[in-house]
Design a protein around this nucleic acid. Sequence first.
DNA 1: CTGAATCCGGCATGATACTG
DNA 2: CAGTATCATGCCGGATTCAG
Lengths: 134, 134
Amino acid sequence: MSPRDTEVTDQVTDVCPVRDLLDRIGSKWTVQVIEALAGRTLRFTELERAVDGVSRRVLVRTLRALERDGLLRRTVHPTVPVTVEYALTPLAAGLGGPLTALADWARTHRADMVSARRAYDAAAARPALSGDPA
Amino acid sequence: MSPRDTEVTDQVTDVCPVRDLLDRIGSKWTVQVIEALAGRTLRFTELERAVDGVSRRVLVRTLRALERDGLLRRTVHPTVPVTVEYALTPLAAGLGGPLTALADWARTHRADMVSARRAYDAAAARPALSGDPA
DNA sequence: CTGAATCCGGCATGATACTG
DNA sequence: CAGTATCATGCCGGATTCAG
């Protein structure tokens, strides 16, 4: 009975499209894989180098999840050592827009979030004090 | 040494703004909290009801994370049973745009992803078969 | 009312070794 | 080359209980 485990969010349990999508792009390497494949086709090993830092196992999981959602096309070439090519589908290309918008926002407001964090952490360090000591 | 644990992604370990943001909005209830607070202020209990399904603990964590990132403003009113109000900051309001774009895409292409999954899962069920058995 | 403290299961990520 | 198998780890999300 298909030993496929459920890693990298393989389920459909969810009914909210937004959460569903976020489960996908929220997983650690998904966006970087999509970026790496933007406008080009890569083989498995090339992807492994392009993403850099991802473990083989997790890369496979990420690719499977993307393929399952129709965002990625996996092509096997029956050469002697088998070669496999990965490419984004038109569906994924359409996702690129909103994703880029989000990425742009993240880069633009990075500084705001960092300073907000510093302020928050600093405040947490002095629980009950109004005047700054010395 | 500050017993603050690290749940709901409190760290800054990351250097990529995009992944950083995705860690935030990727956590299970964040987007729903943001939606619930869109254009209005809510108290803790009101939020608890508005989001519906979130546990108290996780809601607190989610709110803390948002506050830490400067996306949420937390106001304590020293009434007899203390009341606390939560409201989005202008920063979060700006995030609303890209977020809505992503949500729209998710809703628009939900059907594509669902059918892609069905096809994928169906294919996985019959590993080495070309003709569909009656 | 608004949390904090504690305990727990489950799953994603990762390291390592093996294979067609 | 492109994975699979196995083991280990961390931590998110949830339930429950206590407190200011």
